[in-house]
Design a protein around this nucleic acid. Structure first.
Lengths: 118, 118
DNA sequence: CAGAATCCCTATTGATACTG
DNA sequence: CAGTATCAATAGGGATTCTG
């Protein structure tokens, strides 16, 4: 067995363009409906939101609660098991925060591009 | 600024099909030459190895030492800055290890496929 | 409302050959 | 030895349309 598959096993959970955003939302807000997630992450579309949620669900990170009613209502939340990711996410977040400052200091950040003044 | 860009900033470093494998090698073995890395990660090709190393180098995670001689000799190692990743990598590794067991228990692992008895 | 299905496009990965 | 250059294959992401 490849040693690094442990890394990859963990990374696979987090990788996917929208998974960090989704996880952050669910961690911050607890239970959220599909539509709420979509509103909270404006640039995502339904297909991607569905897809990434399904992957997280398959990995037991998020719990999906379906209310069988019209109109439909589906709630998502971090599963108990998923909460075990908190250490990883915190490590990632801490390091990421420091790293952004580091890169900023090294190269400068082109905020002009990445943040249209709006 | 999007909150999750901190996650992403960190994830970007680790994401890339071969980066976990490369990092693991360098962490385990210290200084390694290009060819050694290639031997240690048999399925990678030169292009990918070069590319991923360059990205890691650009992010200050690995150090590249070039000896100007014939035949060429280039050594790679984790940079001082890159060593700061250890917390993240450990968290990832620990969680990944547990997660593999978890998924194994849930779904069973098709070892028959993933590990040809060789 | 919460998706499923379809089609398209681009970024990432890979195979191969060439070079100082 | 340690790459670069080029081209081909693929997977991931996205726009749009349709549905119970």
């Amino acid at each position: 067995m490849k040693e690094y598959c442990k890394f990859e096993s963990a990374l696979d959970i987090l990788v996917g363009k929208w998974k960090p955003a989704i996880l952050l939302q669910l961690i911050s807000n607890g239970i959220m409906r599909f539509g709420e997630l979509q509103k909270a992450i404006p640039d995502i579309n339904k297909k991607m939101l569905t897809q990434q949620l399904r992957e997280l669900e398959h990995n037991n990170i998020v719990h999906r609660e379906v209310y069988n009613q019209i109109p439909p209502k589906v709630e998502y939340s971090i599963s108990e098991y998923g909460k075990g990711l908190s250490t990883v996410l915190k490590a990632l977040n801490d390091w990421g925060t420091a790293h952004m400052k580091h890169m900023d200091a090294l190269y400068g950040v082109d905020r002009s591009e990445s943040e249209p003044k709006g």
